[in-house]
Computed example of a mutant assay.
Amino acid sequence: MPQMAPLSWLTLFTIFSLTLIFFGIMNYFLYTPSTPTSTSEQFKTQPFNWKW
């Protein structure tokens, strides 16, 4: 079974590395987080009655 030349290994490494970096950048910049929809009823607080 013939061995691959070192130049081929270097080419494969650079192609796979650039592909990984490319997909990582695309995932980072194309991710749009959903904004939480909050209603004012959810954050109502009841007044404290201090009895002392």
Score class of each variant (00 low, 15 high):
1 M>W: 15
2 P>C: 01
2 P>A: 10
3 Q>E: 11
3 Q>L: 07
3 Q>R: 06
3 Q>Y: 07
3 Q>C: 08
4 M>C: 04
4 M>K: 13
5 A>G: 02
5 A>E: 13
5 A>C: 07
5 A>W: 04
5 A>D: 13
6 P>R: 02
6 P>A: 01
7 L>C: 06
7 L>V: 12
7 L>Y: 01
7 L>A: 10
8 S>V: 13
9 W>H: 15
9 W>D: 00
10 L>S: 09
10 L>W: 04
10 L>Y: 07
10 L>N: 05
11 T>C: 11
11 T>E: 08
11 T>D: 04
12 L>K: 02
12 L>A: 07
12 L>N: 04
12 L>S: 05
12 L>Q: 00
12 L>I: 13
12 L>T: 08
13 F>D: 01
14 T>G: 05
14 T>I: 06
15 I>W: 02
15 I>N: 06
15 I>D: 05
15 I>Q: 02
16 F>C: 13
16 F>D: 04
17 S>E: 03
17 S>C: 00
18 L>T: 12
18 L>N: 06
18 L>R: 03
18 L>Y: 03
18 L>A: 05
19 T>M: 08
19 T>I: 08
19 T>K: 02
20 L>I: 07
20 L>Y: 05
20 L>P: 03
20 L>R: 11
21 I>M: 00
21 I>D: 05
22 F>A: 06
22 F>V: 04
23 F>P: 03
24 G>R: 10
24 G>K: 09
24 G>A: 03
24 G>E: 02
24 G>V: 06
25 I>R: 10
25 I>A: 04
25 I>L: 13
26 M>A: 12
27 N>A: 14
27 N>G: 07
27 N>L: 01
27 N>H: 08
27 N>Y: 11
27 N>F: 09
27 N>D: 11
27 N>V: 00
27 N>M: 00
28 Y>D: 01
28 Y>H: 11
28 Y>A: 10
28 Y>C: 02
28 Y>S: 10
28 Y>T: 14
29 F>L: 14
29 F>S: 10
29 F>G: 03
29 F>M: 06
29 F>D: 06
30 L>I: 10
30 L>D: 09
30 L>R: 10
31 Y>C: 02
31 Y>Q: 02
31 Y>F: 15
32 T>L: 09
32 T>W: 00
32 T>V: 14
32 T>S: 08
33 P>L: 00
33 P>E: 00
33 P>S: 05
33 P>F: 01
33 P>G: 13
33 P>N: 02
33 P>M: 05
34 S>F: 10
35 T>S: 12
35 T>I: 15
36 P>H: 09
36 P>R: 09
36 P>I: 08
36 P>D: 02
37 T>R: 11
37 T>L: 09
37 T>N: 13
37 T>G: 00
37 T>C: 04
38 S>A: 11
39 T>F: 07
39 T>S: 13
39 T>D: 12
40 S>M: 05
40 S>F: 14
40 S>Q: 13
43 F>T: 10
43 F>V: 08
44 K>R: 15
44 K>C: 03
44 K>D: 09
45 T>F: 08
45 T>R: 14
45 T>L: 11
46 Q>P: 03
46 Q>V: 14
46 Q>A: 12
46 Q>G: 01
47 P>L: 09
48 F>W: 11
48 F>A: 12
48 F>K: 14
48 F>R: 10
48 F>V: 15
49 N>F: 12
49 N>L: 14
49 N>A: 06
51 K>H: 01
51 K>V: 05
51 K>N: 00
52 W>S: 08
52 W>K: 12
52 W>D: 03
52 W>R: 06
52 W>C: 04
